[in-house]
Amino acid sequence: MSAAPPKRTWRKPPAIANPVLRYGLLGLTFGYLYWAVASLPFDWNRIVQGFPRAVRIFGNAIPPEFARSQLMITGFTESIQMAIIATLIGVALSVPVAVMAARTISPTPVYLLGRAIIILARSFHPVIVAIIFVKAVGFGALAGILTLIVYSLGFVGKLLAEAIEEVDYGQIEAIRASGAGYFKVLVYAVFPQILPRQVGLSIYQLDSNLRASAVVGVVGAGGIGGTLMNAFRRFDYDFALAILMVLIAIILVSEGISGRIRRGLT
């Protein structure tokens, strides 16, 4: 071995080598956090009162009250129906939109239109879409269904468009070489390749719609969400807890079923 080396030190090199940038970013982060907290209108008096209120609310909520089960069954049935109908229509509509929004098989103007529809449908939270539909078509399940259709269209449309963009192009060429036109190419070369994905997505979307259908009711678009909202408004916390427990149970069951079916598909 070599002679005793001179004393050397080692420190882990910082993740950002430039010290100005490093401390600048750090300062910026803390500056932002301070600004965000300082600029938000916290009502500290009211927040402090919250702790005894929380105790009272949870005290009222336990034990949960299942006596009004008829109301609950009606609400959940409506949610499930909304989810099923919206999934059916939404998934059906998402196919043409996805074809439009697939860069590989659509001309640019059509592609841009397809993308715009998907971005528009995805960017708004279902509750915002719901509140607009409630104003346009009135309270009830119809507004909820329309909301969930938009929601399905955005999600399934986006993933399906990506699936179409990733299809094996050789198959398209083969069908095209046999003299097939645009729609025959779609039916013979594109759809068979995306079908498994499409079925999986549809089942996933049914599950998602079921979850979403529970919240659009909060703004009056039908389903169990309305029942839950009313329970909160009337301070029936025991009934609200009962609804929440059933809701979680239903979500878990539907997630389990949907997961199992989708695993079986692939």
Binding site: F42, D43, Q49, G50
Partner: peptide
């Protein structure tokens, strides 16, 4: 319901 309406 607990902390009142607001950002909190």
């Amino acid at each position: 319901a607990i902390f009142g309406p607001g950002v909190m």
